[in-house]
Design a protein around this nucleic acid. Structure first.
Length: 157
DNA sequence: GCCAACGTTGGC
DNA sequence: GCCAACGTTGGC
């Protein structure tokens, strides 16, 4: 066994009217496949860089008070996203096949709900000014979080 | 391989 | 609802 690997940290956006932190807390085993990501950069983060045990800031977007609302962790490493093969799904991708899947997802497990830390507050801290989330025009639904950013945010929660 | 047109994201 | 910023598509 290798020595314990350095943990990575992530921020994952979800629209609460589609899938909220409470939904995650109440689903089976508090674990859910993070399916439906259809952006290559976000896919690559999941497929190539996420490991079991990585910690996640759960973020609510497109809502009254967008911000960090809880913590989660990676429960299963990436595997082909089942929704790409399902013609009934809004995430169906006709260009994907079982032999050549295009989209991957990890499983995400609920850790805890926190107070809401709004994006407007995050923008106030110099320590967070380099956060990918806060970069102008950043629309990525999955972004890396540095260890320092993670630790700073833990103190705010 | 370029790039205009188009669609989407997401804070405000 | 607006719209800036970005990613994707497809004609050439």
């Amino acid at each position: 066994m290798p020595a314990e690997q350095a943990k990575n940290y992530w921020l994952m956006k979800s629209e609460p009217n589609v899938f909220s932190i409470d939904d995650l807390a109440h689903c089976n085993k508090k674990t859910e496949p993070w399916s439906g990501v259809r952006n290559y950069q976000a896919r690559n983060f999941m497929r190539d860089d996420m490991a079991v045990g990585d910690m996640i800031l759960f973020y609510h977007s497109s809502c009254a008070e967008p911000g960090i609302v809880g913590l989660a962790k990676v429960a299963k490493k990436a595997y082909p996203d089942a929704t790409q093969f399902n013609v009934e799904s809004e995430y169906y991708d006709p260009k994907a096949s079982l032999e050549k899947p295009r989209w991957f997802n990890v499983d995400v497990k609920y850790v805890k709900k926190t107070k809401t830390l709004p994006i407007s507050e995050l923008r106030k801290y110099k320590q967070l000014e380099k956060m990918a989330l806060l970069r102008k025009g950043c629309r990525l639904s999955i972004t890396p979080v540095s260890t320092k950013e993670w630790e700073f945010i833990q103190k705010l929660l």
